[in-house]
Write a protein that binds this DNA or RNA. Structure first.
Lengths: 152, 152
DNA sequence: ATACATGCAAAGTTTTTGCAACTCG
DNA sequence: CGAGTTGCAAAAACTTTGCATGTAT
């Protein structure tokens, strides 16, 4: 996954906009972290982002990645996904969506299932407190892992 | 939460049965851990279980709790829940259910929503691999935390 | 200029592991 | 008796933090 990428000009522009809107400073580190997040489709971990960005900003340190991810998450620009005992992973998709999670290789894939948002929740849940969002995961074994099994 | 409890005879019997079925040994440590899990309603962490059991088995060590929880989870007798960067929590409810999760105090409550299992998933998900189960969470702020906010 | 960001190293948290002694069946 | 379990201590894995220095606005 840590293959060399070319910065996407659109990502840079998008970060410029975001930074202005939220009052964040523009540093080469943040720029590259943001760009990496947007172009890595597979819900990268902090380490993944670090490896992807390192060639671009050799001085980059892992804790800057952690701090930047926390900052972006805090501002709602990305979200954090945690599955079982795995490390935290980050998701740059801000639209409502669900996840397909492979319990074998831990791959996470997005999909959209609007009916989930529409379905009326059981009455008892209204008494619980203030519900802010729904989160749904389908767990199983992904195509690739199934293929690996078959080969053996 | 680590209040003194009396062992529940039914839990002891239930563990005896489970142990026989799965071929697990019966030790005072496991007995008490199992009993604590069954009687603590609020999805306890390893540490919570440890604190609950310590008065009963003073020699108990935290790693035995971790090993026993892993063992029970491996045999499907309990399940592990992880939320955000919180420590792992354990759930002794084996029927299909969903969770209400308070993002403030991290409380986890069970509820039942059978329609979730019946709803047909988008076609694309069938191509992904072999889906084994659905997991749904409603996230928000629980009654208690809302009340605390109002008081301040 | 100055408030904020960075890199480094060190600490923190939760969970896992190796090992010798012990215990259940 | 013998396989499996326990307690201890140490290690591992991931993430956070303090601090001096550097940088964006």
């Amino acid at each position: 996954m840590p293959r060399q990428r070319v910065s996407n000009e659109d990502d840079i522009k998008a970060y410029r906009l975001l930074a202005k809107k939220l009052g964040l400073k523009m540093t080469p580190q943040r720029l590259q972290i943001f760009d990496a997040l947007m172009s890595m489709k597979g819900h990268p971990s902090a380490e993944d982002v670090f490896e992807a960005v390192r060639p671009k900003v050799p001085s980059m340190s892992l804790d800057t990645v952690y701090r930047t991810l926390a900052l972006l998450e805090h501002h709602g620009a990305i979200s954090r996904v945690q599955h079982a005992d795995d490390k935290a992973r980050y998701d740059s998709e801000t639209r409502r969506h669900c996840h397909l999670v492979c319990t074998r290789c831990r791959a996470i894939e997005d999909f959209y299932w609007p009916e989930i948002e529409e379905l009326q929740a059981p009455d008892e849940t209204a008494q619980w407190g203030k519900i802010e969002r729904r989160y749904l995961e389908l767990r199983g074994i992904c195509r690739d892992c199934l293929a690996k099994d078959a080969r053996q």
